Amino acid sequence: MAGDGNETTAGETALPVQGFMALPERPEDRREAFYRCLADVVRVLGLEVAPEPEPGDRRTWEHLVRAALRDACRQGLNLSEESFGALVKAAVHDPDPSFNRQFVEPSLNAFGHNRVQSALLGYLRTGTDRERAGAARAWYWSAMPLRMPLVRAENPGAAGRAEPDDGSAVVTEWHEAALREFVSNEDLDVRRCILPGLSLRKPSYPPELHDLVDTAVAIARSHPDEYIRHRVEHQVGD
Rank of each mutant, 00 (worst) to 15 (best):
residue 235 Q to H: 11
residue 195 L to F: 13
residue 42 V to N: 08
residue 75 Q to C: 07
residue 38 L to S: 00
residue 84 F to I: 02
residue 60 T to K: 07
residue 134 G to T: 00
residue 187 D to L: 02
residue 183 V to E: 06
residue 141 W to G: 01
residue 66 R to K: 10
residue 214 D to I: 08
residue 134 G to A: 00
residue 120 L to R: 09
residue 185 N to K: 10
residue 190 V to L: 08
residue 226 E to L: 15
residue 28 E to N: 04
residue 107 S to C: 02
residue 64 L to V: 11
residue 53 P to C: 04
residue 199 S to A: 05
residue 186 E to V: 07
residue 34 F to P: 06
residue 20 F to D: 15
residue 5 G to M: 09
residue 188 L to D: 15
residue 174 W to L: 01
residue 228 I to H: 05
residue 28 E to R: 15
residue 159 A to D: 11
residue 32 E to T: 06
residue 169 A to M: 12
residue 80 S to M: 08
residue 23 L to Q: 14
residue 6 N to S: 13
residue 237 G to V: 02
residue 31 R to H: 07
residue 134 G to V: 05
residue 123 Y to M: 06
residue 51 P to S: 04
residue 224 P to I: 13
residue 198 L to M: 04
residue 177 A to I: 03
residue 29 D to P: 03
residue 59 R to M: 06
residue 109 N to S: 14
residue 204 S to Q: 15
residue 76 G to H: 02
residue 112 G to E: 14
residue 212 L to W: 07
residue 32 E to R: 15
residue 43 R to H: 06
residue 195 L to Y: 05
residue 35 Y to R: 15
residue 145 P to A: 04
residue 14 A to Q: 15
residue 17 V to H: 07
residue 188 L to P: 07
residue 91 A to H: 12
residue 18 Q to V: 03
residue 97 P to S: 06
residue 194 I to K: 05
residue 51 P to L: 11
residue 21 M to W: 04
residue 191 R to L: 03
residue 92 V to N: 09
residue 56 G to C: 09
residue 176 E to I: 00
residue 84 F to R: 04
residue 194 I to F: 10
residue 3 G to P: 15
residue 107 S to H: 11
residue 45 L to F: 06
residue 162 A to K: 06
residue 150 L to C: 01
residue 36 R to N: 08
residue 122 G to C: 01
residue 28 E to I: 00
residue 75 Q to I: 03
residue 93 H to Y: 15
residue 53 P to S: 01
residue 176 E to A: 10
residue 148 M to R: 13
residue 79 L to D: 09
residue 83 S to T: 05
residue 52 E to P: 00
residue 78 N to M: 07
residue 123 Y to V: 00
residue 202 K to Q: 14
residue 158 A to K: 14
residue 121 L to F: 08
residue 28 E to K: 09
residue 127 G to F: 10
residue 19 G to V: 11
residue 235 Q to C: 04
residue 178 A to G: 03
residue 26 R to N: 13
residue 224 P to M: 14
residue 45 L to S: 09
residue 60 T to D: 12
residue 155 N to A: 02
residue 222 S to F: 12
